[in-house]
Computed example of a mutant assay.
Amino acid sequence: MTKFKDQTLLVTGASGNLGRLAVENLLARGATKVVAGTRDPSKLADLAAKGAEVRALDFGKPETIAAALTGVDRLLIVSTDAIGGRLDHHKAAIAGAKSAGVKHIVYTSAPAPRPNADGGAVIEHFWSEVELVNSGIEFTVLRNNMYAENNFMDAAQVIQSGQLFGLIGDRGVSYVARADAAATAAGALLSAEGSTIQDVTGPAPVTNVERAALYAKLSGKPVTSIALPDADLQAGMVAAGVPAFLADMLIGFQKDARSGHQGVTTDAVERFAGHKPQAFAEFLAANRAALGL
Results as ranks from 00 to 15, higher is better:
D46Q: 06
D46V: 02
D46G: 06
L47R: 09
L47Y: 04
A48I: 05
A49L: 12
K50D: 09
K50Y: 03
K50G: 05
G51M: 04
G51Y: 15
E53T: 14
V54H: 10
R55L: 09
R55I: 06
A56D: 08
A56E: 02
A56Y: 05
L57S: 01
D58C: 11
D58M: 07
F59C: 11
F59N: 13
F59H: 09
F59K: 13
K61E: 14
P62E: 10
P62F: 07
P62H: 06
P62Q: 07
E63Y: 04
E63K: 06
E63A: 14
E63P: 10
T64E: 08
T64Y: 10
T64W: 10
T64F: 10
I65V: 07
A66M: 03
A66K: 04
A68H: 10
L69D: 05
L69C: 01
T70C: 08
T70G: 01
T70P: 10
G71N: 13
G71L: 10
G71A: 14
V72K: 06
V72D: 11
R74C: 05
R74A: 12
R74F: 00
L76D: 02
L76H: 07
V78T: 08
S79L: 01
T80L: 05
D81W: 11
D81G: 12
D81S: 11
A82W: 12
I83C: 03
I83F: 14
I83A: 00
G84E: 05
G85L: 09
G85S: 09
R86T: 07
R86M: 03
R86F: 01
L87A: 12
L87G: 05
D88Q: 07
D88H: 13
K91E: 15
K91H: 02
A92E: 12
A92N: 01
A93D: 14
I94K: 08
I94H: 10
A95V: 12
A95Y: 03
G96P: 01
K98A: 12
K98T: 02
K98N: 03
S99A: 06
S99C: 00
S99Y: 02
A100G: 02
A100L: 13
G101V: 13
V102F: 04
K103E: 03
K103A: 07
K103I: 02
H104A: 11
I105E: 05
I105S: 01
V106N: 09
Y107P: 00
T108I: 14
T108N: 07
T108A: 01
S109C: 06
S109A: 03
S109Y: 08
S109F: 15
S109G: 05
A110W: 11
P111D: 08
P111R: 01
A112Y: 04
P113Y: 10
R114I: 04
R114T: 08
R114N: 03
P115N: 12
P115M: 11
N116E: 15
N116M: 12
N116P: 00
N116T: 10
A117I: 15
A117K: 14
A117G: 13
A117D: 14
A117M: 09
D118F: 07
D118M: 00
G119V: 00
G120Y: 07
V122F: 01
V122S: 13
V122P: 05
I123F: 03
I123P: 05
E124K: 04
E124V: 02
H125I: 04
F126G: 07
W127E: 14
W127A: 08
W127N: 09
S128K: 06
S128M: 11
S128P: 02
S128Y: 02
